[in-house]
Simulated scan of single mutants.
Amino acid sequence: MSLVLPSELVVDRFLPTVRAMIARRLADHGMTQQEIASELGVTQAAVSKYLSGDSGGDDRFRNHRETVATVDRIADGLASSEMDGYDALAELLALVRSLTDRGPICEIHEAEMPELEGLGCDLCVRGLDPAVRLERDVLENVRTAARRLAAIPRIVDSVPNVGTNVGMALPDAENVTDVAAIPGRIYAMGGRVEIPANPEFGASQHVATAVLAATAVDSEVRSGLNVATNSHLLERARELGIEPLEFDADYDDRRSHLQKQFDDRGEVPPVAYHQGAYGIEPVTYVFGRTAVEATELLEELVAPA
């Protein structure tokens, strides 16, 4: 693990880039290198390096619209004496706050610390918020479940043409943005399962609606995944003491349709399936309290007889 503070990125990546950008704008206004150095609080040699293009920096800031606009305001203000150092600092601090909230600093931070991926750098913005920790735990659970699913022997035979997915909801989830899943779904390609990206909240409409239907009936059931329906899976479920719930594939609203089926049964079954309809593949949902639990059950369901 690489422990990186966002303030390090501000100092090492943001500040040199923005200083170089301001230096060039001030030079365009006709200011001398010594005058620029005085405004920026650096040496003339540093300004010379900025203007020669040898200072490095990061194009994610150079090409960022808000950063460019702020640099232009600061350079115009300093060159015309309409802005002093206090005003310039206020502009830069406001920019840093913005860039740390799902901006380039957040993007770089996630690249430096993969543990932050998918959290939108909320740790920087919201601090040690218990809700952030909960979101992180859900994302990690789905990530682990997806990897475990991909490692199940012959799992490719259970992946429908539309792909599969595994999702997990936050407690008291209300809509799809409260459910974490794999963006773009999980597909079988070349005899193996491909996981296209790390999980994100709101990434799946399909599996999320099934999960939301389940958790609305039983708040402890917060996860589910979809696979292709086949007789072996259903027979194996019965061998494990699970009576799969069959429901109609031809529905207008998956969430309300499934929720009614669960209500009528009086519980959320670990396995629910349909046999397809015109233009609809047969699909089976496997539910669990967590994404890992649902995947563990799937392992048992697809195991050879």
Rank of each mutant, 00 (worst) to 15 (best):
E200D: 06
D87S: 03
E82M: 09
V268G: 15
H109T: 05
G276L: 10
G202A: 12
F247H: 14
S48R: 07
V292R: 11
D253R: 08
L298E: 12
T67R: 00
L149A: 12
S98Q: 12
L95C: 01
P269D: 07
T70S: 08
A180G: 02
G103I: 07
F61I: 12
P16L: 09
L3M: 12
R222G: 11
A23V: 06
E293W: 02
T290W: 10
S219M: 07
E117N: 09
D137T: 04
A181Y: 14
M189T: 10
L9V: 05
A69R: 13
T17R: 02
L301F: 07
D157L: 07
R255F: 03
Y251G: 05
I242N: 03
A37F: 13
N230T: 01
P114K: 00
V4I: 15
H274D: 15
D250A: 15
L89V: 06
A131Y: 14
A291H: 10
L92R: 09
Y273N: 02
L93K: 11
I182G: 09
P16N: 13
H274G: 07
D76V: 04
P196C: 05
G202F: 13
M83S: 01
Q259A: 14
E174L: 11
V11W: 11
A75Q: 05
V166D: 08
A303S: 13
L9Q: 10
A180F: 14
V4T: 14
R13F: 08
V159Y: 00
D122F: 07
A210L: 13
R62K: 10
A145Y: 10
F61H: 05
P304N: 06
G56F: 00
P130K: 09
A94F: 03
A277S: 04
R97I: 01
G202T: 12
L123T: 04
D250L: 15
V162W: 10
L170G: 00
V283D: 04
L95F: 01
L297I: 04
F61W: 06
L134T: 08
A208K: 08
L78Y: 05
A37M: 02
D218W: 00
E293I: 05
E66N: 04
S52V: 01
C106T: 14
T209A: 05
A210K: 13
E246G: 04
E174I: 11
P270N: 15
N175H: 11
T164C: 08
F14Q: 14
S80G: 06
E293D: 12
D76H: 10
T67D: 00
R65N: 06
P171V: 11
P282V: 01
D248G: 04
T70H: 02
V156K: 03
S52I: 00
A180M: 07
H257Q: 05
L297S: 13
S38E: 15
G276P: 10
P153S: 06
L258K: 14
E117K: 12
D264F: 03
V68L: 08
M31D: 15
